[in-house]
Amino acid sequence: MTTIAVLSIKGGVGRTTVAANLAVALAGGGDRVVAVDVDPRDQLALHLGLSPGGSPFGFASAALDGGLGGHTLERGAGRVGVLRFGAVGPRRRGALERCLAERPRLLRELLDELGTSVRYAVVDAAVGPSPWFHQALASCDLALVVATPDAACFATLPSLRAALDAGGRPAATRVLLNLADPGRRLARDVHALLGATFGDELLPITIHCDEALREALASQRPILTAAPSSQAADDFRRLADWTARFDGGRDAALRAVDAQPRGAR
């Protein structure tokens, strides 16, 4: 299983939208995909067509119980298995935060319980730095940091670096530009600055600003079914393709490392 954590250190950049649509796009390739919400605001299920507060079971209770305990995942849009955050009171939430602090890779352990039939896990983690952010960062194979082309987001870049470094970097980090609008000068300039700052870590794929994305959320449908011929849908398909290629490349790299004779390193 490949775990992709969708992260941000600023709210309102469309992180949950990206996580939900990426999960659906990955599932569109025929693989089993689960989406996990590690954000107390519990929005991911909504993006995937499930009613809010529909099930008390979720990441929070699983983490406190130390396991999934035989619960099955809900089935969201595009056949994506969904583990919502779940309802949790203030008292239990304090306990949960302590629990996460003690076991930084608890999320990983929960995901491993799902077995090898699940190809991808897409994790939507709350804005960092926070316990949720670090849990996702420590448990993932690929961290997708969502940025938007505006001054406010650009100003958070130094703290993003710090947050990534503090969390102990995962295998790979990529910055994904969301709400890209190359017709606007400022958007272009910030994009160029991101490129200069992150180099190859800035994904060549961007998610374009698209009214259809907002409308899709309003109807609780993923963009791939709500507006399949829109550019945003195309972008998510490309992002999924890129992720699959990244995954394949990682496998190949791992195999190459494994194939080396002992002592050669």
Binding site: H208, D210, S229, Q231
Partner: peptide
Amino acid sequence: AMVTAPSGHTRS
């Protein structure tokens, strides 16, 4: 290519 309409909708 892509196109963005005045409404903000796009098409690939």
